[in-house]
Write a protein that binds this DNA or RNA. Structure first.
Length: 480
RNA sequence: GCUCCCUUCGUCUAUCGGUUAGGACGUCGGCUUUUCAAGCCGAAAAGAGGAGUUCGAUUCUCCUAGGGAGCGCCA
């Protein structure tokens, strides 16, 4: 790339009309990583020119989602609506009008809709027919008299073509005659997206526009506007889309699509960020896990894929598990707390240290933070036997006897430490020629009620002598 | 319908004309192990199809097929 590192300026420009979508945040991530890797500036701009659908909650969700993922912006947030209020767009619209590069259009939405349908039916491209391109002043007056409010359309060049070099797709070429005279100002006086982005990006001196593939067909039209206004064109880069398992663009019906949903499901921001970075991008050695700050250094837009990527929850789960396993005990506990509270576990009788010990017991097993409460709940709720334990393990012939002996041994313990438990239990097994499972299984079942769980002796130590003995006694009474 | 785009294991991907087509998730097998995980070792698994260019194509070109996106006074 010939671009000077210092002057790279990119932006994420979401519209605040819903939750922060996973596809949107991926675009944000790539812009952010591009800026960081090039030592450039990452800008956030809220595209709120849709007066009817933009909401303050959405704007808030965008901020929160980005902050959660650590996508900090260097400039902004800017709001498109504020630009409109300042009349910035109006100024350029007027310029185009004066230069004869735009014109007023009095067609109604209904008329246009009909024309579009007819065109499709007749197998013609559904572009605007240009009816209002050359209206006389009399025509205009007539329409005004009818109460029609005009929109402003950009006059597309009729021949020739637009060509640009896309950062991820290479040379892209469109014929001008396939382009429609798009509306740049609505009847309400507000600019349309396609016009506003051009003005904003030009005025904010964006050097690169990195956005989703779904915008690629707008690009030639926008480039023509750049040219008409005498603005320097930015370098374009169109990222492939993220698809659901069925191969179509990710949407609500594919399940979780908003960033908060992932947060609520117990995913770590670092894991989601790492996973998203790998959707449609890779290093030459296909590195999977990136340390803090590593993506920011290693990102290279050349590693971007042209074809869409399917979002794979299973791999995300694995990656999240990797990140959870690498957490320090305190971090893990802090992160788990909201989920433990949400699950309603009564932890009031446990010290913070004890809680940490318990949570860490199965750290390598957690794929999400959300599954933590369920996996540790037996420490906090009344003993309840799994069917397998009560129907098979405890009622196996000879079990009562074994548990009775264990009870006697444990009664004499001083420390009740993991180490003491393990050595003495094992020598008891050896002395009596028992098999490991013969003793361990009923022991685990008697104390936890479950057939699997954390390392047995650690678990026993966690419960403590009194509780273990109490539970053993209970089990003895119902075993055979 | 029109315009544009895409096509390597099931999934994410590496490969800048010559490789036993590599890695990761998942799957299967083994080891380890008191259980479930984790960990370690191993296996199966891919160039959509057809032409061409070339001494040689996954890689370059074209066609076909399949898939996707866009076609708003939405962004």
């Amino acid at each position: 790339m010939t671009q000077n590192k210092q002057i790279v300026r990119v932006r994420f420009a979401p519209s605040p009309t819903g939750h922060l979508h996973i596809g949107g945040v991926r675009t944000a991530l790539f812009n952010y990583l591009f800026a960081k890797s090039m030592g450039g500036t990452f800008i956030l701009r809220i595209e709120d020119t849709d007066e009817t659908r933009s909401t303050a909650e959405s704007t808030k969700a965008i901020f929160e989602g980005m902050k959660w993922l650590g996508l900090t912006w260097d400039e902004g947030p800017f709001y498109q609506s504020e630009q409109a209020d300042k009349g910035i767009y109006k100024k350029y619209i007027d310029k185009l009008l004066a230069d004869g590069k735009a014109y007023h259009c009095y067609c109604t939405p209904e008329e246009l809709d009909e024309a579009r349908k007819l065109a499709m039916k007749e197998k013609r491209p559904p572009k605007y027919g240009g009816k209002c391109r050359n209206l006389s002043d009399d025509d205009k007056k007539k329409f005004e008299a009818e109460g029609r409010k005009p929109t402003v359309r950009f006059k597309m060049p009729e021949d020739g073509f637009v060509e640009f070099e896309d950062l991820v797709r290479g040379i892209v070429k469109f014929e001008n005659k396939t382009l429609t005279d798009l509306v740049i100002q609505k009847a309400s006086g507000y600019p349309t997206y396609n016009f506003a982005v051009v003005i904003d990006d030009a005025l904010m001196k964006m050097t690169h526009i990195i956005r989703g593939d779904d915008h690629i067909s707008n690009t030639p039209s926008q480039l023509n506007i750049y040219d008409a206004l005498g603005f320097e064109r930015p370098i374009m880069g169109h990222l492939s889309m993220i698809h659901g398992a069925d191969g179509t663009k990710l949407s609500k019906r594919h399940g979780a699509t908003s960033v908060v949903e992932y947060k609520n499901k117990g995913y770590l921001p670092q894991a989601l960020k790492n996973y998203l970075a790998l959707l449609g991008w890779a290093t030459e050695d296909s590195q999977q896990i990136f340390a803090e700050g590593e993506l920011e250094k290693k990102f290279d837009i050349k590693g971007c894929q042209k074809s869409p990527a399917v979002f794979d929850d299973v791999k995300l789960d694995w990656m999240n598990g990797e990140y959870i396993r690498n957490l320090f005990t305190k971090e893990l506990k802090e992160l788990a707390m909201p989920f433990i509270e949400e699950a309603g576990l009564d932890i009031s009788n446990f010290s913070s240290e004890k809680l940490e010990t318990i949570i860490v017991l199965e750290q390598e097993k957690y794929k999400t933070l959300k599954e933590i409460p369920e996996l540790i709940s037996f420490f906090f709720t009344p003993l309840k036997f799994e069917e397998k334990v009560s129907n098979k393990v405890l009622v196996k012939e000879g079990t009562k006897d074994i548990l009775q002996k264990i009870y006697e041994i444990y009664s004499g313990f001083e420390t009740f430490s993991e180490k003491e438990l393990e050595t003495k239990t094992k020598s008891f097994i050896a002395d009596n020629n028992f098999k490991m499972g013969q003793v361990f299984q009923p022991l685990r079942g008697a104390v936890s009620g479950r057939s699997n769980g954390p390392a047995l002796f650690k678990m026993l130590e966690c419960f403590g002598k009194d509780e273990v003995l109490k539970r053993l006694q209970n089990a003895i009474s119902i075993s055979k």
